[in-house]
Amino acid sequence: MPPAFISLMTGLSLLGVWLSSLQAAFSDSSYKYAVMFTFLIAISNMSFLGVSSPVWALLIGILIAKLLGEGKKKEYY
């Protein structure tokens, strides 16, 4: 089989896993912005100061969650 066809089939088979992961990540609204920025930075594939994007994604995601106060349980009265 041609390598391009194998890559296409692999990508299509992982599409369902990717979509369900995104749905699970964004379903809890308490971390919505932190998850969004973490995901976007991680897929950017850039390095800054010799550090790769997944490391920056985690650091900036944690920083955004702390700055915006995400993850705190809201009490409804």
Rank of each mutant, 00 (worst) to 15 (best):
S7V: 12
N45D: 05
I43D: 01
F48D: 04
V17M: 15
S27Q: 12
V51E: 08
L19K: 10
I43L: 10
A4D: 02
F39A: 10
V35G: 01
F48N: 05
L14K: 10
A65P: 07
A24Q: 11
K32E: 04
Y33F: 13
K74H: 10
M46R: 07
K32H: 07
S47G: 04
M9R: 08
Y33I: 12
F5T: 12
I62K: 08
L63A: 15
A34M: 00
S30E: 04
S44P: 03
D28I: 01
L8M: 05
S52Q: 12
L22R: 05
K74P: 02
F5D: 05
L63G: 12
V55K: 10
K72C: 05
V35M: 11
F39Y: 12
L67N: 00
T38V: 00
S30I: 01
K32M: 08
S30T: 04
F48W: 12
S20W: 12
V51H: 08
T10A: 13
L59A: 15
T38E: 02
P3D: 14
S52M: 11
A4K: 03
S27E: 14
A42G: 01
S21A: 15
P2H: 02
F37G: 01
K74S: 10
Y33L: 14
T38M: 09
N45P: 00
L14V: 11
F5K: 08
A65F: 05
A34P: 01
K66T: 15
M9K: 08
L8Q: 00
W56E: 09
T38F: 01
L40I: 05
S29I: 09
A57Y: 08
L15E: 03
I43H: 02
I41R: 09
F37P: 03
I6M: 09
Q23L: 15
L22Q: 13
M9C: 06
A57K: 03
E70V: 06
G11N: 07
P2C: 04
S20Q: 13
S27M: 09
Y77E: 14
I60D: 01
A42E: 00
K74Q: 13
L40E: 01
F37R: 00
A25H: 02
S20A: 12
S21I: 15
S27D: 07
G61H: 06
L40S: 02
G50T: 05
G11Y: 03
A42W: 13
K73F: 03
Y33H: 05
Q23H: 15
I64W: 06
M9Y: 02
L14Y: 09
I60L: 11
I64A: 03
V51D: 06
A25S: 14
Y31M: 06
S47N: 09
M46G: 00
L14M: 14
I64D: 02
A4G: 01
L8C: 06
S53M: 04
S53W: 11
Y33W: 13
S7C: 05
L49M: 14
Y76E: 14
